[in-house]
Computed example of a mutant assay.
Amino acid sequence: MRRSVRAFDACLACLAIAVILLITATCSPVSAQDVLPSWNDTSAKTRITDFVRATTTEGGEAYVAPENRIAVFDNDGTLWSEQPYYIQLGFVLDRVKALAPQHPEWKTKEPFKSVLDGDLKGIAKAGERGMVELMMATHAGMTSDEFTKIATDWFATSKHPRTGKLFTEMTYLPMRELLDYLRANGFRTYIVSGGGIEFMRPVTQQLYGIPPEQVVGSTIATEYELVGDVPVLKRLPKIDFVDDGPGKPVGINKFIGLKPIFAAGNSDGDYEMLRWTTSGKGSSFGLLVHHTDAAREYAYDRESAFGKLDKALDEAEGRNWLVVDMKKDWKKIFAFEQ
């Protein structure tokens, strides 16, 4: 009997030890090596984790209250691929082809003719004016709900011309991990992109965990109408706001209402956003994604038609912005990599 009691007591002791170990493991802080697993252990990763640790440690000189931990991210080239052309441009090209039977005049009218002929150089020659014309022809003349469905359906089937993967699979895994890491440390994450706001909103929650109301982007004019007795928002063929370059700080102030302490981009179109974010007193962080990996993705910067990175790259060191070298700093770029 005594032997049985001793055995029972021994079992209880083992169980208690196991519970204590489990609780200790659960409550232990996450080490820097456990976060951002798709990042190599370079100085880039260390700078990010050091900043987050400093701004979230109460009592520290760099501490930032949770309500002020705002992080903003460009989308094209920062969160998802922008080569060989912007994903939204791919949507425009497909929309022109889908609508072409209703517009026989497009066969001879530029820039529509170049789109139908698959002539990217011809499209580029049309310049900003031509792009606006394409956008208005493919993005306006419908309700917001109708446009959302069109964009959602397109994302469900449309694939990247080089990888053959869905465009929704062309997101950068290390940047998605960074979004998760910041949110786990009390940051609110926003997209601030030159892309169309209603083009991005249908997929940002699924791709990045960013809800539609935390997306800032370019907009076309919209007005309230009654169709029969049903209220709708009608999209008009008129530019309302361009959220690029100097428009990004304006958009942040207009739609978010707080100055960020963390900003990430990849091109000169993000220059003003990074400058504004990292100006003044207090803790702040600027990050540039530098596309240096031609094998796993693309290598481009100063001469690129999409995502040109020139001025911001020249000034990054002097402004203490982190330049993330995709080839050196990232173990994986896309989740589908073997």
Rank of each mutant, 00 (worst) to 15 (best):
R3Y: 14
A10D: 08
C11W: 07
C11R: 13
L21C: 14
L21W: 12
I23A: 13
V30P: 12
N40T: 04
N40I: 03
D41W: 11
A44E: 01
E58I: 05
E58R: 08
G59D: 01
G59Y: 07
E61K: 05
Y63L: 02
R69T: 07
R69N: 09
A71E: 02
E82Q: 07
P84N: 03
F91K: 00
K97Q: 10
K97F: 04
P101D: 03
Q102W: 08
T108H: 10
L116G: 05
M136Q: 09
H139N: 12
I150P: 00
A151G: 02
A156H: 08
T157E: 14
P161D: 02
T163A: 13
Y172W: 10
L179C: 06
V192C: 11
S193Q: 04
S193M: 05
G195P: 02
G196H: 11
E198S: 09
R201D: 00
Y208K: 04
Q214I: 04
A221V: 09
E225D: 02
L226C: 07
V227L: 15
K234R: 14
L236Y: 04
F241R: 08
G245T: 02
I252N: 01
K254H: 14
F262V: 14
A263E: 01
A264H: 04
S267P: 06
G269N: 06
Y271V: 01
L274W: 08
R275W: 07
R275D: 02
F285E: 00
H290E: 05
E297H: 15
E303C: 15
K311N: 09
W321P: 05
K327E: 08
K327C: 02
W330Q: 01
E337Y: 11
